[in-house]
Amino acid sequence: TRRLSELRVIDLRAELKKRNLDTGGNKSVLMERLKKAVKEEGQD
């Protein structure tokens, strides 16, 4: 898996959309949101 920081905004939005998460905001907001989601998934 590529590091989140290497993803483009369009990629971040696609990942968030797959998880039914909000896709609004700038790159840093999107990255934080996705990071949190990935962390929570890992705790399942």
Rank of each mutant, 00 (worst) to 15 (best):
T1K: 02
T1H: 13
R2A: 11
R3L: 08
R3Y: 05
R3T: 14
R3I: 10
R3F: 09
R3G: 12
L4A: 08
S5W: 03
S5V: 07
S5N: 14
E6F: 00
E6W: 02
E6H: 03
E6L: 03
E6I: 02
L7G: 09
L7M: 15
L7T: 08
L7N: 08
L7P: 07
L7A: 11
L7V: 10
R8A: 15
V9P: 10
V9G: 07
V9H: 03
V9L: 06
I10K: 15
D11A: 03
D11E: 14
D11M: 00
D11K: 00
L12S: 04
L12P: 02
A14L: 08
A14S: 11
E15R: 00
L16E: 06
K17Y: 00
K17G: 11
K17R: 12
K17E: 13
K17F: 02
K18G: 09
K18F: 02
K18Y: 04
R19C: 01
N20E: 12
N20H: 05
N20W: 00
N20R: 06
N20Y: 04
L21D: 04
L21A: 06
L21K: 09
D22I: 03
D22R: 02
T23K: 01
T23Q: 08
T23R: 01
T23W: 06
T23F: 04
T23S: 11
T23H: 02
G24A: 12
G24S: 13
G24M: 12
G24Y: 09
G25D: 01
G25Y: 00
G25S: 02
N26V: 12
N26D: 15
N26L: 04
N26M: 05
K27E: 12
K27P: 10
K27F: 05
K27R: 13
K27V: 03
K27S: 08
S28M: 11
S28D: 12
S28P: 11
S28K: 15
S28N: 09
L30H: 08
L30E: 11
L30N: 00
L30T: 03
M31W: 01
M31Y: 07
M31G: 02
E32Y: 08
E32R: 09
E32I: 03
E32Q: 07
E32N: 10
R33T: 09
R33V: 04
R33W: 00
L34C: 01
L34G: 09
L34S: 05
K35R: 10
K35Y: 01
K35L: 08
K35A: 14
K36L: 10
V38Q: 11
V38S: 09
K39L: 10
K39H: 15
K39E: 14
K39V: 12
K39R: 12
E41K: 02
E41C: 05
E41Y: 00
G42R: 12
G42S: 11
Q43Y: 05
D44L: 06
D44K: 07
